[in-house]
């Protein structure tokens, strides 16, 4: 009974911390924790912000964010600013997509001491 209660608390804590809102990012790493990308609207050639939620029961360390246009062979012209909000959530500011088309948003997260790569496709009109 006590063990059940402890497990419930852990599950509750994780569920509370992990905001499963937005687009689930993909990773080629097997059993990688779920990561969600939330963004309201992306204005063309203007700065915007995104929220990244990492659903991991283990320690989440640093996170790095970047984006590329695979077809155009270029990335962003600015380094985004990443702020940890706690509970596996991060706010990313100063993103800027300066061209319409297919972008790939890339996230590198240190989870339990290992770097795990995630990406999401975003088409900007």
């Amino acid at each position: 009974m006590i063990r059940s209660a402890v497990w419930f608390m852990i599950w509750s804590s994780t569920a509370f911390a992990c905001d499963e809102i937005g687009q689930r990012m993909t990773s080629e790493v097997q059993n990688a924790p779920e990561v969600y990308l939330s963004v309201d609207e992306i204005p063309l050639a203007e700065p915007f912000s995104v929220l990244v939620s990492i659903c991991s029961e283990t320690t989440v360390g640093q996170m790095r964010v970047d984006a590329i246009m695979p077809a155009h062979r270029h990335g962003m012209n600015y380094t985004p600013k990443v702020s940890a909000l706690g509970g596996g959530a991060f706010r990313v500011d100063d993103m800027l997509f300066h061209m319409p088309g297919l972008w790939e948003l890339q996230v590198d997260v240190d989870i339990n001491g290992q770097s795990v790569f995630y990406s999401s496709k975003i088409t900007l009109k």
Partner: peptide, 8 residues
């Protein structure tokens, strides 16, 4: 000022 701070 974010642009001049963060430009690559």
């Amino acid at each position: 000022a974010w642009a001049v701070r963060n430009v690559r």
